[in-house]
């Protein structure tokens, strides 16, 4: 038994959903890396709006701050530092064959999503549970509780993972040392 949603809600859902899909399609089809990155930002914003409509305001805010904000800015920095701003054939090395393969995988995943929406999935939480939970504790605790209890180990291991990534990036990316220059001179 589906509860009927207010028209305003349905309208907004379709607006943001369609914006997200169109922006995502444009993101993968643009030849200019900067244009592609900007379309990705648009997708992220539309997804954040959808999260907020699902009562996950905290996730929505994090989506905007982390993905649309931090990660995309770093992305644009990389594009500009590597001077990839202009559309070029080198920047887009995808051949026709790969595009067909990608399209086939995309269609398969789409079919999977349709199959899932038609399946009868048992809701794992009773209706209204999340709303009551948010009333009790605010919107952050339902995220923070599992994160720092059941998933504590995963959370901590992630920090070690990031440390390894930073060390690796610094080692590979830093300037050449005098010893290395001397070694090449020999």
């Amino acid at each position: 038994m589906q509860p009927t949603l207010p028209l305003f809600y349905t309208f907004n859902f379709y607006v943001f959903g369609i914006v997200a899909i169109i922006a995502a399609v444009l993101f993968v089809t643009r030849r200019s890396p900067v244009a592609a990155a900007m379309w990705l930002v648009t997708t992220m914003f539309a997804l954040a709006a959808l999260y907020i409509m699902m009562d996950a305001q905290f996730i929505g805010a994090i989506q905007v701050l982390v993905y649309a904000g931090a990660i995309m800015v770093v992305f644009l920095f990389v594009i500009m530092l590597l001077n990839l701003g202009q559309p070029s054939d080198v920047a887009d090395a995808r051949g026709r064959g790969w595009k067909l393969v990608a399209a086939a995988i995309g269609v398969a995943m789409l079919a999977q999503i349709f199959a899932l929406t038609r399946a009868h999935v048992q809701p794992s939480i009773p209706p209204g549970y999340l709303a009551r939970q948010i009333e009790y504790t605010g919107v952050i605790a339902p995220v923070a509780g599992p994160l720092f209890n059941e998933y504590l180990l995963a959370f901590e291991v992630t920090s070690v993972l990031l440390l390894a990534a930073v060390v690796g990036a610094v080692v590979l990316g830093r300037r050449r040392t005098a010893v290395e220059d001397a070694a090449d001179a020999r």
């Binding site: 998933y151 291991v157 070690v160 993972l161 390894a164 990036a169 590979l172 070694a183």
Partner: peptide, 26 residues
Amino acid sequence: RDLMIVFLGIELMSISVYALAGINRR
């Protein structure tokens, strides 16, 4: 004993080894 820990372990291992594979920058 948890797929999330499996994933994080594989990533921690792999990311370090990606850097190690390219450690000889010359």
